[in-house]
Nucleic acid binder design. Structure first.
Lengths: 200, 200
DNA sequence: ACCTGAACACCGTTCAAGT
DNA sequence: ACCTGAACACCGTTCAAGT
């Protein structure tokens, strides 16, 4: 068997990553597995282990696409906005994208490393970019604040928004009719920033 | 074979739930499985399906213990505190417990329903109690606010704190040295409430 | 009635062996 | 060099059959 050489290594990687997202969106994130991905692209399961370290690596690389698309979207959406408006826009768009492409974000939110291995640094770096976007706006908003305070506030506000998005997408936020997720995000961002700006 | 009758159904359930938490803490949350739990208590795997609907039911019931212990702790810890103080105390103790019993909370945070089934309502009710505790304090703090606003603020502040706890326990919050999780929680609660109280 | 253990349909991962 | 497919060690879940 073998020696098909229909695709380069890079093409195969791209095919596999596409397949991960297709399966997640079509059949649900729980269905994504090495065997299913291999089947989807018409290869043997073992082949994937020449391209990826393991199933976590494969899923993490697929999730990077999702985060990367979010980052690009946020940058585009906040062009020429005031700092205050930009932070709110980012938060709301995060929620919007998460709710719209629910299953793709479920794959991201619900994924956990097997054996409790730590998330690799290249992945952390990707998510750190998101913090960076928020920090940029907070600096514009309060140039006098110390760098440590900017970092803290960016992480606080983003963790908060992340909390709402995660609970929303994974269906754990028992919002009873009247309470809409978007209103939670608005309330969080606006009240937090209002309080934050008013101290020293 | 069978007919051991060493334990009542209730005792067996308790043994199984203990085993879930023991395995999670001793070997890591990823190691918890129906087969491992059965082995831990010296029974055949199939037996568990006479006590629990499926593996999700088993883990969810074990996680209920964790949430329940949290709820009790929060009630105790906030006796005779002012409303402002109480909300902060609850948030910080949530973080504290989550960080202290890391693996037990990982089991809670990292668990997702197989096949994407919805979380059962009895479990939602348990977590709703937590919102309730926050709501109680917010009512004390601002008796003039409408019930909808209380509910919204309670969910906002708790989702935010949850976001920090989750990112902390699952190791996804890349806090670079200077930024401590407790400071994030403090900043979130205090600034949010400060802003929230100042509107209408 | 209570529990077993074998069976079924899945996993992730490895690796000798084919082309 | 590239890829296979069988194998290994796991899963969750079911259910006829033993006591």
């Amino acid at each position: 068997m073998a020696r098909r050489n229909e695709h380069t290594k890079g093409e195969l990687k791209a095919l596999a990553l596409d397949a991960v997202l297709v399966i997640a969106e079509r059949d649900g994130p729980q269905v994504v597995s090495a065997r299913k991905v291999a089947q989807e692209i018409g290869y043997a399961p073992g082949m994937l282990y020449h391209l990826f370290e393991n199933i976590d690596d494969l899923i993490l690389q697929a999730n990077t696409r999702t985060v990367s698309a979010l980052t690009d979207d946020l940058v585009r959406a906040t062009k020429r906005q005031s700092a205050d408006k930009a932070v709110l826009t980012m938060a709301l768009r995060y929620l919007q994208l998460a709710q719209k492409n629910g299953r793709r974000w479920q794959l991201l939110f619900e994924h956990t490393m097997r054996n409790g291995v730590a998330v690799p640094s290249w992945y952390q770096a990707q998510t750190a970019k998101l913090f960076g976007l928020v920090e940029q706006q907070l600096v514009r908003m309060c140039p006098q604040k110390k760098s440590v305070e900017i970092q803290l506030a960016a992480r606080a506000v983003w963790s908060a928004v992340h909390g709402v998005c995660l609970l929303s997408v994974t269906g754990k936020l028992n919002v009873g009719g009247a309470v809409k997720e978007a209103r939670l995000v608005e309330s969080l961002v606006q009240n937090y920033l209002h309080g934050w700006k008013s101290i020293d």
